[in-house]
Design a protein around this nucleic acid. Structure first.
Length: 172
DNA sequence: CAGAAGATCGGG
DNA sequence: CCGATCTTCTGC
C-alpha cells in the first residue's frame, strides 16, 4: 500500500506517456505541520523538449529551465503572472528537457489554484520526488475515460505545436 | 537598462 | 473583458 513512485519511472519514459499515465496516480504533499494531503491527478499536460515551442526548454538552458536538462524525477516550479506557482515534473534523461505540468487533482482544478493549494514556492525547484518528505507520488488507479485535447494557453507556440493533443483529462 | 509578456484566475 | 503582480527574456 502507498507504494511510492521512483525516479526510474520518470527517467525511462517520454513526457507524453507519463502525462497520460499519471492520470489517476496519487500526488502527496506533507506540510511542515505534519499534515498530509493525498489527491489523485485528473489533468496533465506534456511538454516535450527543445523543439516543442510551447516548452520552456525551447529557449535553451537558462537558470529557469536548467533543471529540465538534468535527469528526470525532480520538481520544476516557476512563477507565472507574478502570482501562481506551476507544478511540473521533470521527465526523461539528461539533456532531454521534457516536463509534465500538473493542471488538476481531485478537488482542485487549475494549475495556478493547485500551486496555491499545495503552498508551493521556489524552494521546491529541483526537489527530488524519490526522497522528498514534502512532495511525492504514489501508485493508484482511478475509474473513468482519459481524453486528450490540445494544451491550454500556448497560442504563442504556433499552430503546429498548439494543436498537439498533449493535454490529458479524466472524463467524468 | 527599460519594456513586454507570460503553461492563470477571479471579479464585473 | 480586464487587472493583479513579478520574474524572465529581449532588444536597444
Amino acid at each position: 500500500m502507498n507504494k511510492r513512485i521512483t525516479n526510474v519511472y520518470f527517467q525511462n519514459h517520454d513526457a507524453v506517456f507519463i502525462a497520460e499515465d499519471l492520470i489517476g496516480k496519487t500526488l502527496v504533499r506533507q506540510f511542515e505541520t505534519g499534515e498530509i494531503i493525498r489527491a489523485k491527478i485528473i489533468e496533465t499536460e506534456a511538454y516535450v523538449g527543445p523543439e516543442d515551442l510551447a516548452c520552456h526548454a525551447s529557449k535553451g538552458k537558462t537558470p529557469r529551465t536548467s533543471i529540465m536538462f538534468d535527469k528526470g524525477g525532480t520538481v520544476y516550479v516557476y512563477l507565472i503572472y507574478g502570482m501562481y506557482w506551476m507544478l511540473n515534473f521533470v521527465i526523461a534523461g539528461e539533456n532531454e528537457p521534457q516536463a509534465v505540468l500538473i493542471r488538476g487533482v481531485e478537488n482542485c482544478v487549475g494549475p495556478g489554484r493547485l500551486g496555491k493549494f499545495l503552498e508551493l514556492d521556489k524552494s521546491f525547484y529541483g526537489e527530488d520526488l524519490e526522497i522528498s518528505d514534502r512532495i511525492w507520488l504514489e501508485e493508484s488507479t482511478i475509474d473513468g475515460e482519459i481524453i486528450a485535447t490540445p494544451r491550454i494557453g500556448i497560442d504563442y507556440a504556433g499552430e503546429f505545436w498548439k494543436n498537439k493533443p498533449w493535454r490529458f483529462v479524466l472524463k467524468v
